[in-house]
Design a protein around this nucleic acid. Structure first.
Lengths: 336, 336
DNA sequence: GTGAAAGCGCTAACAG
DNA sequence: CTGTTAGCGCTTTCAC
């Protein structure tokens, strides 16, 4: 049986109120009394029961993270950033993995609310939950911060990476290096792929080149590597990769890795004959050979910022913000 | 203000005791009474406050996971397995990342105990915490299950993958395929590397071959890929890789990937001239070109099993178990 | 079958 | 400065 505030009070010869006061330091306590109490606390090794505390204070010092997947290196770094920031600030974190299912996401959020977590971070929320108004009700009950995902004209708080900027920078870099015909690789459905495709098409048009969009199945799962490889190999039968087209830009590093593998198999030298640039800067991009040039989304910062924002809401009240996290072009070995 | 059991009692015209009974179904309640109460619960959309519940029941329906890292694909899959099993069985999970620091690990465990989680899973515990007796005190307070890590003659509950068997199988496979001179790659310090080295040396001796152990800095971080690559390239100056030595076995897939990258750079064809076999079967092993042959540790199952064990302890009482999870040789493209 | 009342461990008026 | 008391929302004796 753990020691309670009562035991401490008895040991110190004071009331439990006094003990409570020295624990919380929110009311004046005479120095000698405090010392007596502190001695008792130490002697008995007393830890206030957070459950009892929460019951009256209506604060649990915990936050919930809802994330589509954790085997995906992208999300993993975001979670890492959140965890560190939150823990450093005295919050424990609950984790719920939705596997990209929008119903699961709702269930997860509702369960966190029932648990009385102090706030929730949803990483890459399902677009339909954003659009359906599900979250508009939720934020009435509890502060929520979203990391990336669909956010156009949405009255909710987001931490977003400036993908447009980063993607444009990557494209411009390729162009500056003399690449005129650039292949674009995207997954089947995602807000972020749509944005990038739009930018790509406009860019290609602006330089008077022709567009080649390769769309592969899945987008963020392991399979996308293989899918991209196969798609590119198939594509290479019609068009001379390395001659007609000298560069490729992918919506994420998984796809870029798949493209790299295709070149490997086709005997195309990267970067000498063909340049590849990815997106995200997941750890994988440093493990390939050659190492991938990519656009750093700074996922860890994305996580930290969202946690920072959430803790602010918890402590000072909710409001709607959009925080932009800068992306950064990382030049490694896969393009020249 | 959320609706409480009082509101329901009032609405249904019964006492809160009765409401509590229909919620928990632990005492007989007349059918019509129950229906009245259920109607009220539904009407008011009542959710029992888990904090209040925990305070009296001394059960939080939550477990804590302590893990060294989450950007490491290996741990990530373990956590995934735990999360799924626990959630499917009504438990929420707290996550704490220690970054491989044994002090952090202790703090994490203690914080979970203070939070009154119902049980704790420690993935790859720090050997010094195991040996120092830290955990022997802990299990007196709360059930704990460990996933892998040092466990020889340790009186604690472990879920362990049969690394010895898997590693031996990989070695035998290589030998059967005609490889006599096999290079071994390990990281600097880890119980699991030591075990593998021992097996390797015995095996090499048994087939009358000579041993080559390459030890690289770090073991489970991103850098190990690069470190292994460099080590192998350096090594290749003295000994003809692909001629004198035709195969390599690594302690994990990160190192195997590094070796693969080295071959790539050295112009050595894998698997035609040189065979590589990894360990773990992290997702990365399917993303390389050629895809890595490896030993599947079945990390997801490791996670699930540990959760299963823990929930059993929570519900039926703690005892000491050692559960072995089988490994499996996965032949893909990197060896022949 | 049902309800009154005590209490889980703590905080926060309210008195003094 | 310090103590008494009333809860927070729920479960669980103990009576009836």
């Amino acid at each position: 049986m753990p020691v309670t505030i009562n035991d401490v009070a008895k040991e110190a010869g004071v009331s439990i109120t006094t003990v409570s006061r020295v624990i919380n330091g929110n009311y004046p306590v005479k120095k000698e009394t405090r010392e007596k109490v502190e001695a008792a606390i130490k002697k008995l090794n007393f830890q206030p029961n957070p459950i009892a505390r929460s019951l009256v204070s209506r604060k649990t010092n915990s936050i919930g993270i809802v994330v589509p997947s954790i085997t995906n290196m992208y999300f993993t770094e975001v979670v890492d950033g959140i965890e560190k920031y939150a823990r450093d600030h005295g919050y424990d974190i609950f984790l719920n993995i939705t596997h990209g299912n929008h119903k699961n996401e709702q269930v997860a959020v509702n369960k966190f609310i029932e648990r009385y977590v102090d706030g929730i971070i949803v990483v890459d929320p399902q677009t339909e939950n954003i659009l359906s108004g599900f979250y508009n009700d939720v934020v009435g009950e509890i502060p929520v911060v979203f990391v990336n995902g669909y956010h156009e004209n949405i009255d909710l708080s987001f931490v977003i990476s400036s993908e447009e900027k980063g993607f444009t920078a990557a494209l411009k870099h390729l162009y500056k290096k003399g690449h005129k015909n650039i292949i674009f690789v995207r997954g089947d459905s995602s807000y972020s792929y749509d944005i990038k495709e739009k930018i790509y098409k406009e860019f290609v048009k602006s330089i008077g080149s022709k567009e080649v969009v390769i769309s592969v199945n899945a987008g963020n799962s392991i399979e996308v590597v293989e899918n991209t490889k196969n798609a590119l190999i198939k594509f290479s039968k019609d068009i001379k990769i390395g001659l007609d087209y000298t560069a490729l830009i992918a919506c994420n590093d998984l796809m870029a890795t798949g493209a790299l593998n295709a070149c490997h198999e086709l005997g195309i030298k990267v970067p000498n004959e063909f340049s590849i640039i990815g997106f995200d800067n997941i750890v994988l991009s440093q493990m390939t050979s050659p190492k991938l040039s990519t656009v750093d989304q700074n996922m860890r910062k994305l996580g930290e910022k969202s946690a920072e924002l959430l803790l602010n809401y918890i402590e000072k009240g909710y409001e709607v913000d959009k925080v932009l996290v800068e992306t950064k072009l990382i030049l490694r070995e896969s393009c020249k």
